[in-house]
């Protein structure tokens, strides 16, 4: 589904990603963990070209995202992304936030988009907020709307960039539950997270990044019970 080869990214002289290669299978759920500044978010943002890689290739299905000829906008339609700070459109209602891209980009009819949006809102437990504006929602509710907004485009891959880091502690769970349901439904997902318990329960694979390198790629059981590298051991000591 996703194939990454020798991915590097530099800002000026500072190299943030130092040659990452990996591949993600269809339906695989990957939790990306590591110390802050390790390049987790940059790596994730390269996967839909919000950051343009300095070198290396990224294949989404059989399309090369990093090719100069790539139709980036249309590839992005198949990759949903959820941000730490939600980035809902503040001048639109919850329903409009969700239906905008399907109707404007995919050309789906208003009624069909609305029906689908209400279905998704019911799934994330916010059907009663359809006509509210984002400013009236709590952080947890905002993030669930943001997830529904991404899902409305019927993506094949979902990227989560620290989806619970900006939330008050009591709201973390409601968001993680939604993500977990999604993982169980067979969606291909990559999640940058600091929630170790969640990573262990929900992920098929753990990526441990440090200083721009993919240090370990293992099942949660292997990684959490038997980390291979010195850096992973030290990291786990600090967070667990």
């Amino acid at each position: 589904m996703i194939k990454v080869q020798q991915l590097t990214k530099s800002y000026g002289k500072q190299q943030v990603l130092k040659g990452i290669s990996t591949s993600v299978n269809k339906g695989e759920v990957v939790a990306i963990i590591g110390p802050s500044g390790s390049g987790k978010s940059t790596f994730l943002r390269c996967l839909n070209l919000l950051e343009v890689p300095t070198s290396g290739t990224i294949l989404i299905g059989d399309q090369e995202l990093t090719s100069p000829k790539a139709d980036v906008a249309s590839i992005r339609q198949h990759i949903g992304m959820v941000f730490q700070h939600f980035h809902l459109f503040p001048h639109m209602t919850v329903l409009e936030n969700i239906t905008f891209a399907p109707t404007q980009v995919k050309g789906i009819s208003q009624e069909e988009a609305k029906r689908k949006a209400m279905e998704l809102l019911t799934k994330v437990g916010l059907a009663d907020k359809a006509d509210s504006y984002p400013s009236k929602l709590s952080g947890g509710q905002k993030q669930r709307v943001a997830i529904a907004r991404s899902l409305a485009m019927e993506p094949e891959i979902m990227l989560f960039d620290e989806p619970t880091s900006a939330l008050d502690p009591e709201m973390v769970k409601e968001v993680l539950n939604v993500i977990k349901d999604l993982a169980d439904s067979g969606m291909t997902m990559l999640i940058v997270t600091h929630e170790m318990k969640f990573a262990r329960e929900a992920a098929d694979t753990i990526y441990f990044l440090d200083q721009g390198q993919l240090i370990e790629s293992a099942t949660p059981d292997q990684f959490f019970t038997n980390p291979q590298s010195e850096r992973a051991i030290r990291f786990l000591e600090q967070v667990l």
């Binding site: 906008a73 992304m81 980035h87 809902l88 404007q104 980009v105 943001a146 907004r149 991404s150």
Partner: peptide, 27 residues
């Protein structure tokens, strides 16, 4: 306008012109 608005629109595959007209300009 918060840079995240543009990123959210890009991530949804919304083309530049539509993004400018419907998302960035109103704000």
């Amino acid at each position: 306008v918060d840079k995240g608005q543009q990123e959210a629109a890009m991530a949804l595959g919304i083309p530049y012109r539509k993004m400018m007209i419907s998302i960035i300009f109103p704000q």
